[in-house]
Amino acid sequence: LLISSREGLKEVEESAKEIIKFTTEKLSIDEASQLVISPLCGAVSLFVGTTRNNFEGKKVISLEYEAYLPMAENEIRKICSDIRQKWPVRHIAVFHRLGLVPVSEASIIIAVSSAHRAASLQAVSYAIDTLKAKVPIWKKEMYEESSSSWKRNKECFWTTSD
């Protein structure tokens, strides 16, 4: 945001933004990046999670995501406020795809901006690790031989992976 003043163009302190979006539409990396870009920042860090076409030798033909929406959004807001306690970041955007997702498309995009790169790089890494452990979202893989399986993140905080 720019305004004119007697001193000329002066930057207004833009307020920190958190954009959280769940959608059945294809995710746009460009949109996530544009949302967090700031003239105060020298870095935008992105994580893009995409859907794989195989699991333990089985061919995955499609994947489906569902979420406990209001709680998932609240848990992501908690992650955003944790991030702000830990690192000086500017804006945070988290997009998660829901419903049927074709193989190779993005299921999640996390974008964070910061004045210097270390903060946003670490924040993005923390955000995806914590999201996998705490945010109520589920993925079901559908395999070629018409079987399917609900997945479990190894980070899921109340179960031990076996």
Partner: peptide, 10 residues
Amino acid sequence: IAIIPPISGG
């Protein structure tokens, strides 16, 4: 009250 099976988001 939600029943939450192991999560697999991301």
